[in-house]
Simulated assay, not measured.
Amino acid sequence: MTTQKKVESLKPSMFGLAQHKYQTHSATVPGGLSREDLTKPELWALNRARIRTHDEIRVVAEDSSFYAKLLVTYADSREVYTAVVEYQELDAPDMEELTQAQQRYITKLCGPLKWCVIDTETDEKVRTGIDKRSLAERELEDFLRAKAL
């Protein structure tokens, strides 16, 4: 015969809005790190004053080779320990292909059409009538992203 453990109600101090209970941090780390490297206390040594127990850390490799989500299992002024909750290896973009695509499309002042985004291979104006160069550059970034280049 098994005895059932009595479940007690949570104290109000143990329950609350997430924004008051933990922080979510974002870290960009070198691409050569392994999943195990993410749990080493020395990786977080220069940031330990900002990290608390039960915080979350969203990690992305500098070269986009992986994404991870960590839970801080212990943090004090000397050490930070983490556990990998989620880890996903990613296909890094082909940088040569990306560079070629970025060189294919440019922004240019197009007279009465204002600023344009132009395909240099076909001379086609893929975006026209843009008021400012900074907006044209943003349009170009959005265009390349939409083409998944």
Rank of each mutant, 00 (worst) to 15 (best):
I118V: 15
K132S: 11
T28R: 06
E62C: 05
C110K: 02
F15P: 02
A68G: 03
L149W: 08
L98K: 14
K125F: 05
L10F: 13
A148H: 15
H54F: 14
I106V: 14
E36G: 02
K11M: 07
S77H: 15
D123W: 09
A101I: 02
S34V: 08
V72R: 00
R127T: 01
A148W: 09
Q103H: 13
R52Q: 15
T39E: 07
T122R: 06
V117Y: 00
V84C: 09
D123K: 12
T24W: 07
E141M: 06
E86P: 02
Q4V: 10
V60K: 08
G32Y: 07
Q19M: 11
R35S: 08
D123H: 13
W115K: 03
P12D: 13
P41R: 03
R133I: 10
D37W: 06
L135C: 05
Y22I: 04
K114L: 09
T128P: 01
Y81Q: 07
A101N: 08
E137R: 08
A68N: 00
T3M: 10
V7D: 09
D63V: 03
R145T: 06
C116I: 03
S134L: 12
R50Q: 12
N47F: 15
A148N: 15
A75R: 00
Y105T: 02
L33Q: 06
L135W: 05
L90R: 11
F66V: 00
A61W: 01
L10K: 11
K69G: 04
I57Y: 02
A68M: 03
L98M: 10
R35I: 04
L140Y: 01
V59C: 01
V84P: 04
I106H: 06
V84N: 06
R138C: 05
D76Q: 02
G129Y: 09
R78D: 11
A92L: 06
L43H: 02
Q88R: 12
Y67W: 10
R104F: 00
C116M: 03
E96Q: 13
R58T: 04
R35E: 12
E56H: 13
E86C: 03
S64D: 13
E124F: 09
L43Q: 05
L46R: 15
R52T: 05
D91S: 14
H25W: 13
H54M: 14
P112L: 11
W115D: 03
Q19A: 12
Q103V: 04
D63N: 15
S65P: 01
S65F: 05
Q23E: 08
W44L: 02
Y67K: 11
D55L: 07
E97H: 12
A83S: 14
Y87M: 06
L10A: 12
T3S: 12
K69P: 01
